[in-house]
């Protein structure tokens, strides 16, 4: 009896703690979202109230859509993220396969070399990266960003994928070899489909940091036509500091795509982290 009651009160305490923390985590996002739909007066008079018939207003969104080229920014972010992810996955999987499958001179050394980048942040090399992009004329192009993010994502991708590829059965690959498949076909037809879950994990891990990065867009591609959504909203908000409607709407519009991605991929993301892929 007492045991049952004490476990009930433990459960209640647990839920209470979790609910409080969930509120802390979501409150700022919630406040931004509801106020972006309110008129300027209502934002200040009743910041925590939900928008109603009287206070509802889309003026902020109108300003944002008129002044900032958010669709272009969104498109740029999309291109950069998708192409970088594709390259990380393709190149990463190929290198991981070479390291996991073949025994050759320098295999361990190559693995260590590629793993260096897991711990050393690529930002340290920014000065030389900018210089290189200037001299190759890639500054203010999306290509520059794609190259940087690909290089940044490869080390962890190779590491995670080669762990997975070591688990693919040798019998299957040898059966393929007996059937006369080339090493390339073995990789693309037999191994790649089997490591698809690990590839999804790598993709999800890389997606959010690439989408959210401010440093490299700011330094390598600040021009208007190649701005990413993160940089675009940063600049926009900086210019409209006093226009609260516009700032709140711009923030909401920047939150929206990430939230959609999260809702689609959250199961994959959480499964990826909890499967111990990054241990």
């Amino acid at each position: 009896m007492t045991k049952a009651r004490s476990s009930l009160s433990t459960k209640t305490t647990m839920h209470a703690v979790l609910i409080v923390y969930t509120i802390i985590a979501l409150f700022p996002v919630f406040v931004i979202l509801i106020n972006s739909f309110k008129s300027r007066r209502a934002i200040f008079r009743d910041p925590l109230g939900l928008p109603n018939e009287e206070t509802f207003s889309l003026i902020g969104y109108q300003t944002v859509l008129k002044q900032g080229d958010f669709f272009l920014y969104f498109q740029n972010s999309m291109i950069v993220t998708v192409v970088s992810l594709a390259l990380i996955l393709l190149f990463g999987a190929m290198a991981a396969f070479a390291l996991a499958e073949y025994r050759f001179k320098g295999n361990t050394l190559m693995g260590l070399y590629l793993a260096l980048g897991i711990m050393i942040p690529i930002r340290i090399g920014t000065v030389a990266i900018l210089e290189m992009m200037v001299s190759t004329g890639l500054v203010n192009t999306l290509t520059a960003l794609i190259l940087v993010y690909t290089a940044q994502g490869l080390p962890l991708a190779v590491f995670i994928l080669s762990e997975f590829m070591k688990g693919v059965s040798d019998d299957l690959k040898n059966a393929g070899r007996i059937d006369g498949l080339s090493e390339y076909k073995i990789f693309f037809r037999l191994v790649l489909p089997l490591v698809r879950p690990a590839m999804a994990t790598v993709a999800v891990f890389n997606m959010i940091p690439i989408w959210n990065d401010l440093w490299f867009p700011l330094i390598l591609a600040p021009a208007e036509e190649v701005k990413t959504l993160t940089l675009g909203s940063q600049v926009f908000i900086g210019q409209f500091v006093t226009d609260w409607n516009a700032v709140l709407s711009a923030l909401s519009m920047a939150i929206l795509p990430v939230m959609i991605l999260y809702v689609i991929f959250s199961r994959q993301l959480i499964r990826g982290i909890t499967s111990g892929a990054v241990k």
């Binding site: 390259l87 393709l90 190149f91 990463g92 190929m94 290198a95 396969f97 070479a98 390291l99 073949y102 050759f104 190559m110 070399y113 590629l114 260096l116 980048g117 050393i120 690529i122 340290i124 090399g125 920014t126 000065v127 030389a128 990266i129 210089e131 290189m132 190259l147 940087v148 690909t150 290089a151 940044q152 490869l154 080390p155 190779v158 080339s182 090493e183 390339y184 990789f187």
Partner: peptide, 25 residues
């Protein structure tokens, strides 16, 4: 050669855009 082909893209991009700039910096 297939090992070289498998490794080349990743090693090239990683070396050119990450390791080389790091040491160049």
């Amino acid at each position: 050669w297939h090992i070289v082909v498998f490794l080349a893209p990743a090693v090239l991009v990683y070396t050119a855009v990450m390791i080389y700039p790091l040491f160049n910096t």
